[in-house]
Write a protein that binds this DNA or RNA. Sequence first.
RNA 1: GGGCGGUUAGCUCAGUUGGUAGAGCAUAUCGUUGACGUCGAUAAGGUCAGAGGUUCGAGCCCUCUACCGCCCACCA
Length: 709
Amino acid sequence: MDERLLKPYDPPTSEAAAQGLWLQSGAFAANPSSPLPPFSMVLPPPNVTGILHLGHAAMVTIEDIIARYARASGRDVLWVPGTDHAALATQAKVESLLHKETGQTRHDLGRDKFLAQVETYAQSSHDTIVEQIKRLGASLDWPREAYTLDATRERAVRTAFKQLYDDGLIYRGHRLVNWDPRLQTTVSDDEVEWVEREENFYYLKYGPFVIGTARPETKFGDKYVVMHPDDARYQQYEHGQKLTVEWISGPITATIIKDPSIDMAFGTGAMTITPAHDQADFDIATRHQLDHEPVIDLDGKLLPLAGPFAGAHIKKARPQIVATLEAKGLVEKVDPRYHHRIPTNSRGGEVLEPQVLKQWFLAVNKPLARRGGQTLKELMRQPVESGQIKITPDRFSKIYFHWIDNLRDWCISRQIWYGHRLPVWYRGDEIYCGIEAPIDPGWEQDPDTLDTWFSSGLWSFSTLGWPSDTQELKRYHPLTVMETGYDILFFWVARMILMSQALRGEIPFRQVYLHGIVRDEGGKKMSKSLGNIIDPLDMINKYGADALRLALIIGTAAGSDSKISEEKINGYKRFINKVWNASRFVIEHANNNQTTPLTAADQNTLNEFEALTRDVTGDLEQYRFYLAAEKLYHYFWHVFADKIIESVKERLHGQTSSTDQDSGRQLLAITLGRLLIMLQPFAPHITHTIWQIWKPDQPLIMFEPWPMS
RNA sequence: GGGCGGUUAGCUCAGUUGGUAGAGCAUAUCGUUGACGUCGAUAAGGUCAGAGGUUCGAGCCCUCUACCGCCCACCA
């Protein structure tokens, strides 16, 4: 009996030894020239904004199970690690640290010095994250690690930008965008988080009309009053008719506009518009070619148009403006219980102010000549519709189509410093777009950077070396599986389909598996502000990586949120202990002589076990990891340990024949071996450790063939 | 306003094509020095949110309702 088995299982020692051996021996390395069928996947790159939480740990666990199962099924597995620079999130994080520690802003430091600080922060965050992922036992091919902002990815980003610019899909335009006055940058539509609030709703007299608004402070420049062309109440007014009305700071000339987008049932059916600060108003103004004069500046302060209120911040000015309106008798009534949704920045929480700005956009409705005149929307929709890309669970396909239908041109330029600078240079009125800077003098590069999802969108192929025509790209793209959270279906999955379809003319992956959000015991989303973040390392140190992995996977169906508690993790720690002790008994009593025939009863037990094998294999093939793990757990403990081992024990102590005893010993050896192989994707450390002790001359358990009958 | 998910034992959740309700944790009692006290055995605990329908048979399929949660949407 090996003395290592006599001691209780000690996760820290065994896990460190196992991980050290795996990494050192290159066990996770993909081999592009392997004759085995390829299997490919990329790790959704975590943001370098701090540490990983249990949600990340669940993601790594699911993907590691997929990768290890594929390896055990005899495939050449490529699983690429990487991290994401998360432009805005990381910059905002460092800016707030800087402000807290020194009271300085990024402008006090200047672009170069500030970026150096961001890099330092990103590097340390990266190191923590990589350590966390390794401690989970993830079988990633580390030498291929990528960063969304490294040199290879920089070249990919510039190449992609130039290609789409040359295609005429990337353009510069004056459009209404989501502006964050605090972070001083634009934000894409998908990043807007709408927050419901109860506010006052004001009914204001505007000449002969009564108009409603929740934002009186934007109303200074309102010189258009809009109504539905069929509204009988306003039949006497003609489209384009002008009239003078008394307004906040004196009389102004108002123009009547008739537009069918107006809801006759809402309020009075008449409204004034603020095209410079509201999407709907901007659209109406565009349809009728109206002015869109700004009222609010980029800091959120009122412009000279606001007369005596110029320079005041909109938040402070509102009550004063309402007071002025009341004094003039222009307030008809106030509804104090108006429910209204306010756009905020999901990457910082500040209220956003729509602004008309000159920005760079990616056109989603423009035909792309290189792709048979299909638009990006069509290119995104078609592969999911045709089933070329399969989304699990299926219900997300519908959500995906709905998102595409509502999609507007994507604003890709950001006024922040951390990120890929736009590969665009200006000289007077000239614009140059290229992978390298122009050589002749006088050109100035655009100071803006790209939306972080632009580089993430290239991830399925930029990690494989694109735009170089690499062996990896040929062999592993499209990826076999894309596993990620349903919360970034639009941000990321959709953008990868867009980029791969547009730039490579192929899908980025064949199968999308979406997992849910890991919540705390109370069902709350884990977040730093709630203080309920659990560091996976704490749990690994306390219960071991295998126990944590099992706790994270069991009870977690695709696309469903799950809850995690320490009690659950502890429960699986006990299972790991059970595996250790049962293995100890079997190894001590096993019969490794493969030729011993099994008795009919033992053969029957083995046949039943084979049914489990088929069941578990089917679950893994169908991405039902939680069921596979649960069935193995249940069988190991309540059938193998409780019944099979117990009955063999009795036979060994009883008066049965030696052939019967040998048969029992062999049944134990066969069953344990296969159980360990099947448990390996879920609990790689303990199964590896037992295997090393039991069968030191055989290959690593992760390369043992999957027991399919 | 549109769409989606959930509602099963005290708690967390399974229940894959409809065939007499399951697991873990927690609880109670008993037991156990040879694989394992990080254990074993036993027990208690559910009109499967509610109503109606299809069926020989419904937790599962259909309709409606309630509550919880999520996503999307230019009601100013």
